[in-house]
Design a binder for these strands. Structure first.
Lengths: 298, 298
DNA sequence: TCATGGCTATACTTTTATGTATGAGCAAGA
DNA sequence: TCTTGCTCATACATAAAAGTATAGCCATGA
């Protein structure tokens, strides 16, 4: 009856073996040695009563059972990281680590100056940035604060509506000089278009709202919006990006601005638990103000 | 830079010290010794850089910082328990442990026969029952399957609408013989009423929907609906309970059945991850069918 | 007042877990 | 073919964590 619960450290080792695919690799990551990692896996297998990996000289291959347990181990890892972040901000001063999740474009083009100013004000603050759009992140505490383009239907979350980020077609002046300026949406079919690789839910919504959009064949495909932005800047063709980002470069010109308008509703999201944490409050307020300024610029 | 992450076992020990309020108590619960538990706490304090407890000969008092970290430690504990349950069902047969969360009344009055029949069919299945109404339970994986009286606004959850459980005023025949049968809602003010101790969201909703309800003073107050049911059965007075439960006892009679009808919409909820787990499927289906039968009876 | 039973803290011993060193297997490339 | 580089497994030595025993503190109750 008095079965001793196994060490929680086994789960950490197990997760790293899954990620690395080998005992040696996991040992390197964890700062342990290969025999130790092997012993952890052995102990875990013995206590569970079934094998987690099939061993081979090339590494360890996870069994179905191991894959079924992986999400739990990942939650453990995320939670323990969140605990350490929470602990880092327990001093009465604004200090510690705050992990922010945002889309690539926002995280790279918009947030850095906001965060730089914030950090100048609070030098003890460490900021982690994670490029991701998954709402689950914040529920699973993989991030403390998130910039999201969807309403979080979550009771446990604090959500602040920032406003709508306007989007539009844009191209580099160099490209337009060479290929001409399209006048109607239909003209787009004669242009080099920059677009998505896989359809996401957000993209399907835009397509549904814009029936005038011609059937297009993209000349440049990338799931990364950041890569699409880079392609626009490089004069590859016409693509969609945030108006405010395009406006920063006088050589990037809006195209079909009158006939086509889109916007991304934006929210700032935080776990309710963190409302009272000073380090999170400060970052939340700075992001709210910074993002609103970003949205309001012409 | 190469700061070693602390042992995750420290968090387990830390949580138990919080719960027990003493090193010795935590040691007893964990199957460790008091010096070991003390060392874990010391190590954790040293790595965090601030104290977690103020020591005294009477025990350990948590600091504010420790209380702030408690929810994270609890998530860790819940997740590791969920991992072990998931592992328990990894055999190809229907086996292992399933943890069910339901209200006290449902869990004690309705579920046992359903689960008994299920267990007769699958003897290798272990069922854990947790009396709780918090939706978070299932999100935080503190339970595998939950019976809930609210729509779960959660993407990651599978929810099956069971139907509406009819509620009504009831009293024991003995009480009604002695005090008479109320004819209108207003008559209730002359009766001994059994009711809630604190207003919950569900209760406020009912009050808002029923403006005819007189201002009442309860003669018996309990937050536990189970205790209220027991008071009704004991002939203490008039209270609200599920019609189907009252109908089981011929001496419990409905009161004001015509003028007052309420119902609790009921859902069966499961984490999406567990959809494919055989042990959870089986329990989910059995609960769905059993609860629907329960609701349909007159 | 003094014993009892709860608690923590410390010194010491033992057990456990980890690291080190090495061997064997397999794949890729000279 | 034979190295090189990667893997896991094993035997042995060491370091780290656990347990044991005990002392001290502070309540409570006879």
């Amino acid at each position: 009856m008095s079965k001793i619960e196994p060490s929680w450290d086994y789960y950490r080792t197990f997760l790293m073996v899954l990620k690395e695919g080998s005992l040696s690799g996991a040992a390197r990551e964890l700062g342990l040695t290969q025999p130790t990692v092997g012993r952890h896996v052995d102990a875990m297998e013995e206590m569970l009563g079934f094998p987690l990996f099939t061993r081979s000289p090339q590494g360890l291959l996870p069994t179905d059972a191991a894959r079924a347990l992986q999400p739990y181990a990942e939650t453990l890892a995320a939670t323990s990281a969140a605990l350490l972040r929470a602990a880092s901000g327990q001093q009465d001063t604004v200090s510690g680590t705050v992990r922010i999740s945002a889309s690539e474009v926002i995280g790279i083009e918009v947030l850095p100056p906001i965060l730089a100013e914030l950090h100048a004000q609070y030098p003890d603050l460490t900021v982690e940035l994670s490029a991701s759009d998954a709402i689950e992140d914040i529920l699973r505490q993989e991030a403390d604060i998130a910039v999201r383009m969807a309403v979080p239907a979550q009771d446990a979350l604090v959500a602040l509506h920032i406003g709508a980020v306007p989007l539009g077609f844009h191209a580099h002046r160099r490209y337009l000089d060479r290929r001409g300026i399209p006048e109607t949406l239909a003209d787009l079919s004669r242009h080099s278009l920059i677009g998505y690789d896989r359809e996401t839910a957000a993209i399907r919504a835009i397509i549904a709202r814009t029936p005038e959009l011609p059937e297009v064949r993209f000349a440049f495909k990338a799931d990364s919006n950041l890569a699409q932005l880079a392609a626009i800047r490089a004069g590859f063709g016409i693509g969609i990006c945030q108006n405010a980002l395009a406006a920063r470069d006088p050589d990037i010109l809006p195209v079909l601005a009158a006939g086509f308008a889109m916007k991304l509703e934006t929210w700032l999201v935080m776990h309710e638990n963190l409302k009272t944490a000073p380090r999170c409050r400060v970052v939340f307020d700075a992001l709210a103000s910074g993002l609103r300024t970003y949205i309001r610029q012409p």
